[in-house]
Design a binder for these strands. Structure first.
Lengths: 199, 199
DNA sequence: TGCAATATCTGCACTCGATGCAAATATGCA
DNA sequence: TGCATATTTGCATCGAGTGCAGATATTGCA
């Protein structure tokens, strides 16, 4: 219905996936050229060759065209947590799972997306809200991995901290002009956190 | 211009402050009765006895009517940090400053505001964005207090963590039905964090 | 192949938040 | 009192988002 298609059996699903991709890339191209606010839904509809009304059959909102790109993050985090040994200490588990996942986000594509979100206030608030959701996913995944209660306080605190570090690392990655991936900045931030606690 | 008046000398300033307050309380009453989305700007304008157009001379947006209530938080945090001894360890400084500040937010008023924001998705994203700004304020305040560089990594990590705890504590405070203030939940979360790091 | 059931696409009308502009009104001050 | 300035208001307009119903395309079945 709203997510990317899984079945590619029929012509219907194929066309739907095609249109979804066409709308998305047309919109992203316009956003990065003219900016998010200055691009209207009419612009996107024309560029993608669909009616304005149809856009809402593919994306819940203008914001969603951009932010749905990151929709898979939660699943990636869950999978990365599941790959960690269950007896790993909480903070190490969070750090290793997130840096594992973050290393997949290299290159110009993810960077352009992150920059667009970072530079557009309207997108930033929505993005923040998604980070909050990620905290919950990470906390529940770690609790499950370690056999703790889903609302375990310690686990949630660690999850909040780790996602906070992820946000910081993303910011540092965008600010830096070198070629290092976001996971390098994440490692540095986690190291600083450990240093603090060993005062 | 946009903030609450400081000069109350002339009639003009007094009337402006009055209208500001009248609009704000009329809006909050409607929001808590009918909900945020279901309340239109026309409803608010009529209830406050001003024109719809004038609302935008007092608040930047509908969201801002609610979220500007928390506008003073940043200054409160800065002030609370300034009151801490400069040689206090970073994490303790953040914890003490925030719990100091949080203890002022007791009672039904702050709770209703927090609940409204918590229960309204549109307000929640904007609120998240404000937390991000608070992280920056807290980090800079602590760095200044301790004579560190404003972008010191360790300080920023601690600030991010502490604001994360503040968010968690606010959630726990809303979820609990007892009379304890948010600072109690904050203390518990900080304790859990310390426990984790002493694994 | 033809046809009915079903899913998708589109246009239309409408609501609501937000903004620019200029006229009307109120206030401050000499 | 009267001029300069700030505030309020109405009006027109834009753009996002939604409900609805008819048009169009796809699928599965006879």
């Amino acid at each position: 219905m709203q997510a990317v298609q899984d079945k590619i059996s029929g012509l219907r699903e194929r066309k739907r996936a095609d249109t979804h991709a066409r709308v998305h890339s047309a919109a992203m191209a316009l956003f990065s050229r003219k900016g998010f606010e200055a691009t209207t839904l009419d612009d996107i509809a024309i560029a993608a060759g669909v009616s304005r009304r149809s856009l809402f059959h593919y994306f819940a909102s203008k914001e969603d065209i951009v932010l749905s790109t990151k929709a898979g993050l939660g699943d990636l985090i869950e999978a990365a947590v599941a790959r960690r040994p269950a007896d790993e200490p909480l903070l190490a588990m969070a750090e290793n799972a997130l840096t594992d996942m973050a290393s997949d986000f290299q290159g110009p594509g993810p960077r352009a997306l992150a920059r667009l979100i970072h530079d557009t206030p309207a997108l930033r608030s929505g993005d923040q809200a998604r980070y909050e959701a990620l905290e919950g996913r990470l906390a529940r995944a770690m609790a499950a991995r370690k056999g703790l209660a889903p609302d375990d306080l310690q686990t949630r605190v660690v999850a909040t901290t780790a996602i906070g570090v992820l946000r910081m690392a993303t910011g540092a990655w965008l600010a830096s002009d070198d070629e290092r991936g976001p996971e390098v900045h994440g490692k540095a931030a986690f190291a600083a956190l450990r240093r603090t606690l060993a005062d």
